[in-house]
Simulated assay, not measured.
Amino acid sequence: MKSRFYAYNFGIPLLCAAVVFLLFDMTKIDIAFSNLLFDPLTQTFPLDKIHLFEKITHKWARIIPNWTGEIAVIGAMLSVIWPLVNPQKRPRLGAFLQRSRVAPVLRFAADHRRDFFFVVVAFAVCTGVIHFLKAHTSVYCPIETSLYGGKMAHVEWYENFQLFHEAGEGRCWPGGHASGGFTMLALYFVARRYQWRFSKAILWGSLLLGFVYGTTRVLQGWHYMSHTFWAGIFVWLACLLTALAFYGRARLEMPVLEKHERTVSVATSAALAE
């Protein structure tokens, strides 16, 4: 079971990384695809000049991960209030909160404190990883390079990678906008912990959101397609490692509800045996 967990959750993304590296980074597929979107006569990516497209796909689209992160922060803050209230010692305050319907919200936040903090930390870790890679590879976006009317040279991320210091001013690899969509994968690990029925829908929905975010930027000339794949791989690994730190492998393998049901089943069997 342990080996299967690691093979599935680490093996698949690492295999995807190898495929992306060989299929995209070692070939000219990225450039060939972007060439189809580039107008050599005007030396522009036409979709980059459509302000409504930019507003909907780049600015408005940020609402989903931004609001999710903000809700998680608020939930994490509220989760520490209910224990401080302590209705048993402060019955009047507890009764007031109950009448004002605030108590259920505070109790819910307190019950899911670990989950709220996990989402906050997972979002922060994913953002940090992507920013680190951007700064330490210094890859310029297609539209900024001489291939598409810009002034900067086109380089692959591995040609310019620096581990201990920033490699330059380029900030295009991996895809930052795509990573914003992929960070919603943090919700999948929460859903997986509780064995929610729609956990797979959250998984595929988060992946789809990341790919949509990334593809729109490819259409505008601000990323290559491989940048989106790399963003998804790194965000998955970041969320997975954070989930392991918060919940542990055993808890992710045996979600809380299943564990509770097994406990009840064992207790019932023991009672019947007596």
Rank of each mutant, 00 (worst) to 15 (best):
R4E: 12
P13I: 12
V20A: 07
F24A: 01
D25M: 09
M26F: 08
T27Y: 10
F33D: 05
T42N: 08
T57V: 00
I64A: 13
P65V: 04
E70V: 12
E70D: 13
G75P: 08
L78A: 15
P91I: 08
G94A: 07
A95F: 06
A95V: 01
F96D: 10
V102E: 03
P104V: 08
V105G: 11
R107H: 10
R114L: 11
D115Q: 14
C126Y: 11
G128F: 00
V129R: 04
I130P: 03
K134H: 03
I143F: 11
E144G: 00
G149H: 05
M152E: 11
E156D: 07
Q162L: 12
E169F: 13
C172K: 04
W173F: 15
F182M: 01
T183A: 10
A186E: 02
V190C: 15
K200S: 11
W204F: 14
G205N: 06
L209T: 12
T215S: 15
T216G: 00
W222Q: 09
M225K: 00
H227S: 02
W230Y: 10
L244K: 06
L252R: 04
P255A: 09
L257A: 15
H260V: 12
E261N: 08
T263L: 09
S265I: 02
V266T: 12
A267H: 05
A273K: 09
E274N: 11
